[in-house]
Amino acid sequence: MNVPAISIRGLQKYYGTYHALRSIDLTVKRGERIVVCGPSGSGKSTMIRCINRLEEHDGGTINVLGTELDDNIGNIDEIRREVGMVFQHFNLFPHMTVLENCTLAPMLVRKTPLAEAEALAMRYLEKVRIPDQADKYPGQLSGGQQQRVAIARSLCMKPEILLFDEPTSALDPEMISEVLDVMTSLASEGMTMICVTHEMGFARKVADRVIFMDRGEIVEQGSPEEFFTAPKTDRGAQFLSQVLGH
């Protein structure tokens, strides 16, 4: 168990000639909760999307739970089974009920029998506090409810690691806390989490480590205490003043 959850070395990513990620090094221990913040366009989302191969990296190495992320399809599938992701725009499957959204992947990927998959789904829907919506379609739910379903859907695969890509950015303000509450309770149960978010209150409360990115680089990192009270870099201080200044 002393293999790190994620180990990234010298990660490079280009979009055409645009250098999106400049030699990123990052090691995430099992059970560690990391918040990634930084101005938009700083490469936060790109970095976590590289971890489950939604973006292909152009240089460096990514090792997830001991499996090397390379062009080997088997490795990619193995990593995706163990790494869940929650998206800004939820990306629930609109033609399936909430329950079907949750049972699809376990049944197709883990070959879980229907009854078992449904019991599992109900357990996680209870955990995110919407078991009563199981038979509805995503379009019938509020944004906050949809995002909680999306979290439950990821959990149904029993992932080792959960990636959150700005999970509250598309929500109305009054729905943000219900999603953050669910994330907080996951964190308290020892899930390995990487959250790209602008919710600094959440970062302060939950994160073991805050990573600040700008222009495709990790500019600084440290405990939330250190980062929020005494950022080591000017860019970090400037970002904080913009985010917290109002």
Partner: peptide, 12 residues
């Protein structure tokens, strides 16, 4: 995002 969500769940 539909395909990305399905990919992230490991669906082939």
């Amino acid at each position: 995002g539909q395909d990305e969500a399905a990919m992230s769940l490991g669906i082939p």
